[in-house]
Simulated scan of single mutants.
Amino acid sequence: MVAFARVVAFCSWPVVVPPVAAVVLAATWGRKPHGVVLVLVALALVAAVIAAVHHAEVVAHRVGEPFGTLILAISVTVIEVGLIVMLMTTPGQPADTLARDTVYSAFMIVCNGVMGLGLLVGALKHRVLRFRVEGVTGALATLTSLATLTLVLPSFTTSEPGPSYSTAQLAFAGVASLVLYGVFVFVQTIRHRQQFVEEQEPYHAVPPSARDALISLGMLIICLVAVVGLAKIESPAIERGVKLLGAPQSVVGVAIALLVLLPETAAAVRAAARNRVQTSFNLALGSALASIGLTIPAIAVAAKLLDQPLTLGLPAKDLILLTLTVVVSVMTVAPGRATLLQGTVHLSIFGAFIFLALTP
């Protein structure tokens, strides 16, 4: 019976997906797949992203804090940066604005889509939701500062033409982003950890064994390689699909952000449904912080090494939506409790973001 259970565990989807994705990558690398094969590549890419986040969470649970949070954040960042760089280096892709569109989309998806859906689901089951104001406002303040440094200020600087940073300004923004993210992780996991936990101390699951953690580490590495490679294969099809639909190129950034944030979104909504809103906010805002605080410095380095232009400043429409999101988010978290109304407001802004991304 024990042997059968081990066989079942070994054949579970998180263990099966990485080698399958690697096989798909090996079979299609250097080719230009079409039709059914292209669909299989896309499915393998999505499955590899979800499996990578799962294995990163297993390893993070084993090593504990603060290294667990860093492992998860770095894994998600590798996926996001890999997708962006592969698309940036594909001829015909909007290389200069792709990073901006992806990071901005991650901000809007988290602060409106994930938070709104979590509040809506939680409030429908528990009416009034409560959380720790100091923890959520600290995360929101850090996220707002990162978004302003990387997405807003480039539209108003004058050292370079257009909404772009000069090399010195980009270096400063990258270092500042790393410092802000690093200090936030230190505060969240060590210095003021009590501000980010549920008021009722949650049940702590038994960490995985060293063997399981090593298996997940190996599977994580396979997934990360597969994601980057499959993204390179899929990128021409993404370009053709955007042109066929007549959608603006910024939709590519929205798609990348949705794909990368999918696992954390599901976990955040499940936590809110169990009336663990603080945990839900930690998952959501933590993903957005990593998306900006780690992705922008990495993309800045990659852009300089690849000699690619990098446009970070948002256009007026997106600046207005970002400002509205920050104001509404502050008003949502300030009382320390939320209801159905707050969830609906955030989802309405999220709907406007998606609609205007498709029809600018």
Rank of each mutant, 00 (worst) to 15 (best):
A47K: 01
T148N: 03
S250I: 11
G313Q: 00
S287N: 11
I320K: 08
I354M: 14
A226F: 01
V23N: 03
S145N: 07
R193A: 11
L153D: 09
L178I: 05
V327A: 11
P297D: 04
V36E: 08
S166N: 06
G82S: 03
C111F: 09
V103S: 01
L312Y: 06
I215L: 14
V41M: 00
P33C: 07
T102E: 02
D318R: 14
V37L: 14
S329P: 02
G246Q: 02
S159W: 11
L120Q: 04
L340N: 00
H34I: 06
L45P: 02
V85G: 01
I215N: 03
M331H: 10
V39Y: 08
G253W: 02
G35Q: 08
A255Q: 08
T137P: 00
L117W: 01
S209C: 12
L259N: 04
A147H: 04
L124V: 12
A352R: 00
S155A: 15
E201W: 07
V242P: 00
A273S: 15
A257C: 07
P315S: 04
P208S: 07
S348R: 07
R62Q: 10
V128D: 09
P163A: 15
L45W: 15
E264R: 10
S166M: 11
V328P: 01
V81R: 06
L87H: 10
I233V: 14
G30Q: 00
L306C: 08
Q93F: 15
A226W: 02
T97N: 14
F156Q: 04
P309C: 01
M331K: 11
R100C: 03
D212W: 09
A205H: 14
G336M: 07
V175M: 00
F67Q: 13
C11L: 15
A47T: 01
P207M: 02
V76A: 15
A303P: 00
V345T: 07
Q342A: 14
G113W: 04
M331S: 12
L230K: 04
H126R: 03
L43D: 06
